[in-house]
Simulated assay, not measured.
Amino acid sequence: MSLKLRKRQWLGLLLIGVTFAVHWFLYFKSIKLSTPSIAAIAVSTYGIHVLFLSAVFLKQKITSTDLIATVFAFGGMLLVIPEFNWSSELFWGAIIGVASGFLYGVLPVLHQLNNSLSNTLRAWGQFTFAFVAFLPFGLQQQWALQSNDVLGLLFLGVVSTLFAHSMWIKATTELPGVITGITYYLYIPLAVLISFLSIDEPITGSMILGALIIIVANVVLVINKWQSRLKAKAK
């Protein structure tokens, strides 16, 4: 893996890493202010963000089906937010989760714009610059960790981040978007179920309905884009 890169390539890796770091920070903040389920559902709006970001930066066409799915996803998000109260932490947790989903949607666009670099190099660049971005905050903390805390941080850092995101970068690069896009949304019901079983988080009917609407809307977007690519190749 050669590190002899042009200035533009280094800047691309830096932008990927910083975007990844801010995405994770906002996601953790969303979980802290709201609940794991609300945060997971809010971040799932990333498919909508990818649609419009791809249209702007990758010149991909937006169809009427895309717009209809976007409207439904926005409606689903409104159902998920417990209350529209500016002083409510749950409300701001959901809003911050949507912002995290936006940055998560920026990541695949950045990876495609820098696809001249290998998957491995982009993955390590993403994690390295994200680590540098987090380092000043870590040095300011008064660390008093118990063994369970250390194990939890190791799991989050190695399994949930380094391993999982490295595989995700490879998958989104090499597999059809219809497969990776639909598979991604499986984490929402899993997050809701694990949250319910592990921390007794209350799950309301509106949350479930909102999550289903967002998932369906995003899956429609993925399938619609995949079919458009097939038609384009057939011409």
Rank of each mutant, 00 (worst) to 15 (best):
V178P: 00
P136Q: 09
I214G: 03
R229Q: 10
L79Y: 04
T19K: 04
P189Q: 08
F72M: 14
G105M: 01
K233G: 00
F127R: 02
N224L: 05
A94V: 04
R229W: 02
K170S: 11
W226D: 14
S64V: 13
I194P: 05
I215K: 08
P136K: 10
I199F: 07
L186D: 00
I223E: 08
G138Q: 10
I194F: 13
G12D: 07
I194A: 12
A171Y: 03
K32D: 13
T172G: 09
F127M: 12
V219K: 02
A55Q: 02
F134Y: 15
G181M: 00
L13R: 09
W86H: 08
N114S: 11
A232Y: 04
D149H: 09
R8P: 00
V222F: 14
V106A: 04
M77C: 10
V159T: 12
R122I: 12
G177V: 05
A133Q: 04
S37L: 09
L33Q: 06
P108F: 01
K233I: 05
S2E: 14
R122D: 13
A73P: 06
S206H: 13
V150A: 15
A191G: 06
V178W: 07
K4D: 15
G101Q: 03
G210W: 03
E174N: 07
V80R: 06
N148Y: 11
T172I: 15
P82A: 14
F129C: 10
F57Y: 10
F28N: 09
A94S: 11
V71N: 01
W168V: 08
G181Q: 02
Q141R: 14
T35P: 03
N224W: 05
F28T: 06
H23G: 00
K29L: 12
I96Y: 05
S198D: 07
I188W: 00
S34P: 08
V132N: 08
T35N: 09
E83A: 15
L78C: 15
W143L: 14
V22I: 15
K59L: 04
A21Y: 01
L154F: 14
I203R: 03
L103Q: 03
N85M: 01
N85C: 02
L154V: 13
S160A: 15
R122Y: 09
Q9R: 00
H111S: 09
V132M: 14
H49I: 04
F84P: 05
I41N: 08
G152F: 11
A123T: 15
H165F: 13
R6S: 13
G97D: 05
V192M: 14
M1A: 12
S54P: 02
V56N: 00
K4M: 09
I95R: 04
K29H: 01
T180I: 10
A73K: 07
W92M: 02
V80C: 05
G17W: 00
T204I: 03
A55M: 07
Q60A: 03
F102Y: 12
K61Q: 11
L53I: 02
P189L: 09
W226L: 00
L190I: 15
G76F: 03
A217L: 12
S116M: 11
K235N: 11
Q227V: 08
R8F: 06
L103P: 05
N148G: 08
E174F: 02
S88W: 06
S87E: 12
S198A: 11
